[in-house]
Design a protein around this nucleic acid. Structure first.
Ligand SMILES: [Mn+2]
Ligand SMILES: [Mn+2]
Ligand SMILES: [Mn+2]
Ligand SMILES: [Mn+2]
Lengths: 219, 219
DNA sequence: CTAGTAAGTTAGATTAAACTAACAAAATAT
DNA sequence: ATATTTTGTTAGTTTAATCTAACTTACTAG
């Protein structure tokens, strides 16, 4: 049996390793706002349970089993976020904290029902992929907007990481998933870019923003 | 802050005292399947927090504050059960265990939304009243079917307690809330009663069943 | 290449929530 | 009225999850 606490560690480790392939005690500590010694002993415990590869002073990795468990929790999180937005009428910036709790509900029927009612969605409201029931996550080949060049036309596919503040900022700019953006200029000094979309002809996006926007190039 | 564990004790105490006005350590112990010494010290802790009136060897009572907290958890439980049945398509015998978990979610917005989407329901799928947002529970003056007499015509309003097994038994007999029953005879030996309803002319209900069915007399 | 800093670990303490064993009080039965 | 049983309480132990303080290892900047 995996406790709610353990589930949160697994998820943190999964998300941290998703890009780099490994993570450190320090990073989990910061992410979860839990002191390093606590993280350290939890990693040993999860290692005992066969969910984490732990060796002193080496980077942390999830085992295959740990990866699957983590992905299934993330599945519940993202299905929940989608349900809250699509079926209950919440905005995309209101759902994360609720999903953070509901992801720990033990009830396969509950999440199966959500999945059915949603028509088996593959992405959450922030564009992140929803792992399937075996914990397999499809990887899309999107690129961050800050790697694009002048003249590129791209579609906004996902926001990552999707903090509440960022989402509210995007709301204020009417920037939604699916919006098509044309890159007009890139300021060399601070890497801010000027884009047009919908009826907006010249919106400036800072590099802090463009580093979180995943897009699919059209041209 | 009230922990999930504490919430379950408060709810148990509320439900046990709902009829009799008080409850014992032993009853809570049995209800929650937790040993008496554990219940005893939890009652002391909740007393420290001002939620329970605790005095050695005296019956347990909730304080006004404890009563309100408990009712608000029960509100979340029953709203959830109603949502699961009305909006997600679960059957009335499938929702209790899920609600037992979701009742502990901390998110006023989530339950407010449920309430709105349901149109501010006043009873749960088993006919039990849903406390209002101040923790006030309307008391209906229903009577148990086993207190009725031959010739009475009654409407089934609630099932209490509503175990999964009982609900499934009622399903098998096509007995739902709102069904009108006519009492034809009462067997003195075991107090089983024979009723008719819908197209069923002579169903026999044991006293174990009739002691759980709350009805409103029509005649 | 060493000195200093950052990261990781160990040891020991704390709190919450459970338990068993033993004892005390209250209720019940003879 | 006393003996027995049930209920309630106290004391002490365990496990999970956190912390701080102190120490060790690894990384990094001169
Ligand atoms: Mn989220
Ligand atoms: Mn969580
Ligand atoms: Mn219930
Ligand atoms: Mn519960």
């Amino acid at each position: 049996m995996i406790s709610q606490t353990e589930e949160n560690y697994l998820k943190a480790l999964y998300n941290l390793t998703y890009l780099k392939g490994e993570a450190s005690v320090n990073e989990i500590s910061k992410r979860l706002e839990i002191k390093m010694p606590t993280v350290n002993s939890m990693m040993k415990k999860l290692s005992e349970k066969g969910l984490v590869h732990y060796e002193s002073y080496k980077p942390l990795k999830l085992t295959e089993e740990g990866k699957k468990e983590a992905a299934l929790i993330i599945r519940k999180h993202r299905l929940t976020e989608m349900y809250l937005v699509e079926k209950m009428g919440f905005a995309w910036d209101e759902v994360h904290q609720i999903a953070e709790q509901i992801e720990h509900i033990h009830s396969p029927e509950f999440f199966t029902k959500m999945d059915q009612l949603l028509g088996y969605p593959t992405v959450d409201p922030h564009g992140s992929p929803i792992p399937d029931h075996n914990g397999v996550m499809r990887s899309e080949n999107y690129v961050f907007l800050d790697t694009c060049e002048i003249g590129n036309v791209v579609t906004l596919m996902a926001v990552q990481p999707s903090s509440k503040e960022l989402l509210q900022y995007l709301n204020s700019k009417n920037l939604e998933l699916g919006t098509t953006l044309t890159i007009h200029s890139i300021e060399p000094f601070d890497r801010s870019i000027t884009v047009s979309y919908d009826k907006r002809s010249a919106e400036v996006l800072s590099s802090k923003v463009t580093a979180t926007l995943l897009v699919r190039p059209i041209s």
